[in-house]
C-alpha cells in the first residue's frame, strides 16, 4: 500500500510536468494580440519589445525550460495582465484561504445534509420522504444554477435583511454563499447514495443479514451504507476541488475574492504565467485528491486492490 502511494506520488510529479507542458503549448497557440491591451496603437518595435519582455520571442523549448527552471526554484512567476508585475504568490495568497474556507464549509454542509438524506431516501424507498427527496434533487438538477443562485441572492438577502455583497467579517454573509454552493452537492450525494444503497439492498448478503435477524438499522448502517459509500468516497476529494472551481457563479454574484473565477478570468485575459500557476495549483490538488480517493476506497472495501497483484491479469 505504502509503496503504491509513494509510486503514485512520484508518478504524479511526472503527470504534473506533462500537464504544465501541454497547457504551456496550448497557451502559446493563443493570438499575440491578446497580450496587449492596445495592440492597435502599438508599433512593431513596441510589440517586439513587449514579446521579448514576456519571453515570447524565444523558441518554445527555451521558454518551456525557463518555466520549469523557475518553478524548480519555487518561483511561480509574475502576473502580466491580471495584475501587472505583481508576483503570483502575492496574488494567490489572500484568495486561497477564502476558497478553502468556502469550499470546506460547503462540502461539510453538503455531506451532513446529503448523506442522511440519501440514506433516508433509500430506507423509505417509494414512500413520502423518498418522493420529497427526489423532488428536491430533481429541482436542483433541473433549474439552472445561474437562475436559482441569483434568485437565492435576491430574495435571500431580502428575507434575512442583509446586504447583497459578501463581507468576510460578518458570519451572516457566509450563510447564503455556503448554502447556495452546497445545494448542488447535497442533491448529488443524496441521489447517488440512494441509488447505490437501493442497488446494495437487494444483494444476497443483505438478505442473509435479515435472515440472521439483524435490525434494519444495523443492516443499513454497517452493511448497506458501508458498501454503498465506497463509490462515493472516491469522489469526495475531487468534489471539494470541483466545489472550489465551480464557485464561479457564487463568487461573481456575491463579490467573493476567491479562486473560482480566477482560472477562467486569467485564461481569457491570456495571462500565461497566471494560467500556469493556477493550473499547477488545481492540478496538484486534483491529483492528490485522486490518490486520496483511491486510498479511501481501498480502506473501506478490502476486496478492492490497486495496482498489479500476483496472479491477476
Amino acid at each position: 500500500m505504502l509503496t503504491y502511494i509513494t509510486k503514485r506520488l512520484l508518478r504524479s510529479l511526472l503527470t504534473l510536468a506533462i500537464i504544465l507542458t501541454i497547457v504551456f503549448i496550448l497557451l502559446r497557440q493563443m493570438p499575440i494580440e491578446g497580450y496587449f491591451a492596445n495592440y492597435d496603437k502599438l508599433s512593431k518595435v513596441q510589440i517586439d519589445s513587449g514579446l521579448s519582455q514576456m519571453g515570447l520571442d524565444q523558441p518554445m523549448p527555451v521558454q518551456l525550460f525557463r518555466m520549469f527552471r523557475d518553478l524548480f526554484k519555487g518561483d511561480l512567476g509574475t502576473s502580466r495582465i491580471y495584475r501587472n508585475n505583481v508576483p503570483i504568490t502575492e496574488i494567490l495568497a489572500p484568495k486561497i484561504p477564502i476558497s478553502l474556507k468556502l469550499g470546506g464549509l460547503a462540502l461539510l454542509v453538503s455531506l451532513t445534509v446529503g448523506i442522511p438524506m440519501g440514506t433516508m431516501m433509500a430506507r423509505h424507498k417509494g414512500k413520502f420522504f423518498d418522493h420529497f427527496g427526489t423532488a428536491f434533487v430533481v429541482f436542483i438538477q433541473a433549474v439552472p444554477a445561474a437562475v436559482y443562485f441569483l434568485f437565492l441572492q435576491l430574495y435571500g438577502t431580502e428575507l434575512l435583511g442583509i446586504r447583497m455583497l459578501f463581507d468576510p467579517n460578518d458570519w451572516k454573509m457566509w450563510v447564503l454563499p455556503v448554502f447556495s454552493m452546497s445545494l448542488g452537492n447535497i442533491a448529488y450525494y443524496a441521489m447517488w447514495l440512494r441509488r447505490y444503497m437501493v442497488d446494495e439492498s437487494t444483494k444476497d448478503y443483505v438478505q442473509l443479514a435479515r435472515i440472521k435477524g439483524l435490525s434494519e438499522n444495523k443492516i443499513m448502517t454497517s452493511h448497506i451504507f458501508r458498501n454503498a459509500f465506497v463509490p462515493m468516497i472516491q469522489y469526495l476529494p475531487t468534489s471539494f476541488l470541483n466545489t472550489v472551481i465551480g464557485s464561479i457563479y457564487i463568487e461573481s454574484l456575491y463579490s467573493i475574492p476567491g479562486m473560482g473565477g480566477l482560472l477562467v478570468d486569467v485564461i481569457k485575459r491570456q495571462d500565461n504565467a497566471m494560467v500556469q500557476a493556477v493550473v499547477l495549483l488545481f492540478a496538484t490538488v486534483g491529483i492528490i485528491g485522486l490518490i486520496l480517493g483511491d486510498v479511501a476506497m481501498v480502506f473501506l472495501d478490502p476486496r478492492i486492490t490497486l495496482g498489479s497483484k500476483k496472479g491477476g491479469r
Partner: peptide
Amino acid sequence: VRKLDFFFTELYNVLDNIPVTIVLILVAY
C-alpha cells in the same frame, strides 16, 4: 486490463487537469 491502468490513470490525470476553458477558447479560436 491492469496493464493499462497506469497509462489511463496518467492520461486521465493529465486531461482532467487541463482547464476546459483553454480548450474551449482554443477551439473557438
